[in-house]
């Protein structure tokens, strides 16, 4: 595969076309605003946490294919996870995109998130792929809006 088809894998294009959990969540306990000033991407994240576990999660907003697909796949990946597990996954996901890696991503238990390993070849797009995750992090921390700048 070329770097380009590695970046725009079918899973990413599918989640861009038909994002999952693309809605506001009634009774969300946490919400957050994410903003990427570089490309104007904006997303709002809604999370319902019960007993330290993410029960429901949804998002709305505008963004590029990478940021939209990342938000969509993230909601699938963290639903049902404890807050600690979600944070831990964010840490590993960030390393997957930015760190040197010889081990195939699939082997490290990323599941579908492994499709983002191609982003490593496009440093300027890492912010797009991590925007939703930064937003989740700040929503759960109850802090200020997330920005990739």
């Amino acid at each position: 595969m070329t770097a380009l088809t590695d970046l725009y894998q079918e899973v990413i294009l599918d989640h861009n076309r038909s994002p999952r959990n693309f809605r506001a969540i009634e009774g969300a306990t946490h919400s957050g605003l994410g903003h990427n000033p570089l490309c104007g991407d904006q997303l709002t994240l809604y999370v319902k946490v019960e007993d330290g576990t993410i029960r429901e999660i949804g998002f709305q907003g505008k963004g590029c294919a990478i940021s939209k697909a990342s938000a969509s796949l993230m909601t699938e990946a963290v639903k049902g996870k404890t807050l600690a597990e979600a944070e831990e996954l964010f840490g590993r996901f960030h390393d997957l995109l930015t760190g040197p890696s010889d081990v195939p991503a699939e082997a490290k238990g990323f599941g579908k998130l492994a499709v983002f390993s191609g982003v490593r070849e496009f440093p300027v797009r890492v912010k797009c792929a991590t925007l939703a995750w930064h937003t989740l992090h700040s929503a759960l921390a109850g802090g200020s809006p997330a920005s990739t700048e």
Binding site: T2, A3, L4, L7, Y8, C39, D41, G63, C64, A65, I66, K68, F122, V124, R125, C128
Partner: peptide, 12 residues
């Protein structure tokens, strides 16, 4: 297609 994706593909 978001302009950012257009930019990345044209860059290739």
């Amino acid at each position: 297609v978001h302009p950012h994706d257009v930019g990345t593909i044209l860059d290739q």
